[in-house]
Simulated assay, not measured.
Amino acid sequence: MARNLRAGLIGLGMMGRHHARNLRALEGVDLVAVADPGGDVHGTAPDLDVLPDAESLIKAGIDYAVVAVPTQFHREVALTFADAGVHCLVEKPLAFDIGEAEEIARVFEHKGLVGAVGYIERYNPALQEMRRRIADGQLGQIYQISTRRQGAFPDRIHDVGVVKDLATHDLDLTTWVAQSPYATVGAVSTRRSGRNDEDMVSIAGRLADDTITNHMVNWLSPFKERITVVTGEKGALVGDTIKADLTFHANGKADTNVWETMASFRGVSEGDSVRYALQRTEPLRTEHIAFRNAVLGDPSDIVTMREGLHTVRVVEAVLESAQAGRTVSLSF
């Protein structure tokens, strides 16, 4: 009988505690060691000794590690695990800049290790179902992908701005939903909360397949919103990842021009609207199942480090565009 995989977790902050909870509940996996130089402030693993660093986790004899430390430490920690032959799930973004991301991805590939990036939004039931329906041709040709991700400032974020923290989710999920990389991005950003990094950004882009995109992201709104709208030739799919809801609005044949007042706010035609009944599994649980399966030999559902590297490139292009006031092109 095969033994359970031995998992380690480094970083016991806001995300780390949720990783610990899911690792403990994951079939075929034992959470055997945790590490954080600041201790276990949330009481995440009261039955385990809190180790000081990645080297200590390696000595505990782990098969894979979840890296939930601040972004600025991703390179150091991930490469430490790679040198020891330990598979890694690294929280998003993969690294602080392109150079670090390229190095991490290259080393993991060279050593033949499973490396993934924790883009949890991909595993939201609404977006999983959206991706499946788009792949099945429900929307026909895709014209536009638009996202809105806004809310109040999270005090736990100290090392990056809203682009590297929040917008990176939208940039990743957009390329995944469309199955096409970014070709160009243009962005404007601002700083309104007194921090050194941007807290609001508006991004317009074009994918390699000519899909146009736009993303509104900020930490300055008094309400929380997580919306993805994909518009195509046959209608639009709207995903709400807070509620895990997915709604389809069909392009229809019902002519509203016969009633001028109605046409002014309904449009020239409309079809049926359907909100789908979904199996709502916690996205982080689905992400952990996918990574466990990858370590066991099925990497089909993970966000690879190569994909994470592309997203870091797009993030850097967004920041460059906002600073320089021009559109930036990306190679793909």
Rank of each mutant, 00 (worst) to 15 (best):
R3S: 14
L5T: 06
A7D: 08
G8D: 08
L9P: 03
I10S: 00
G11A: 05
M14W: 10
M14C: 00
G16V: 02
R21C: 00
N22H: 15
N22G: 08
R24D: 03
A25H: 13
A35L: 05
D36Q: 10
G38A: 11
G38I: 02
G39A: 06
L48W: 04
D53G: 07
S56R: 08
G61F: 09
I62L: 06
I62M: 01
V66D: 01
A68C: 12
Q72M: 08
H74A: 03
R75F: 08
T80M: 11
A84D: 09
G85I: 09
V86H: 01
V90M: 07
K92D: 09
P93S: 07
E102W: 09
A105K: 05
R106C: 00
E109W: 00
G115V: 13
L127F: 12
L127R: 13
R131M: 01
R133G: 07
I134P: 05
I134T: 07
D136M: 13
Q141V: 02
I142K: 00
R149G: 02
R149V: 03
G151C: 07
F153D: 02
D165I: 08
L166A: 15
L166Y: 15
T168C: 15
H169I: 10
L171R: 03
L173S: 10
W176M: 02
Y182R: 00
A183I: 03
R191I: 15
R191E: 12
R192I: 14
R192L: 15
N196E: 15
D197L: 06
A204P: 01
R206P: 01
L207W: 01
D209V: 04
T213F: 00
N214S: 13
H215E: 03
W219G: 03
L220V: 14
F223N: 01
R226W: 12
R226F: 12
V230F: 05
I242W: 00
T247P: 08
H249D: 05
D255V: 10
T256C: 14
V258C: 09
M262I: 12
G271L: 13
Y276K: 04
T281S: 03
T286F: 04
L296S: 08
G297M: 08
I302P: 03
T304D: 08
R306K: 13
G308E: 01
L309E: 06
H310Q: 15
R313F: 04
V314Q: 08
E316Q: 05
L319S: 06
E320D: 13
S321N: 13
A324Y: 04
T327N: 01
T327Q: 09
F332K: 04
F332W: 11
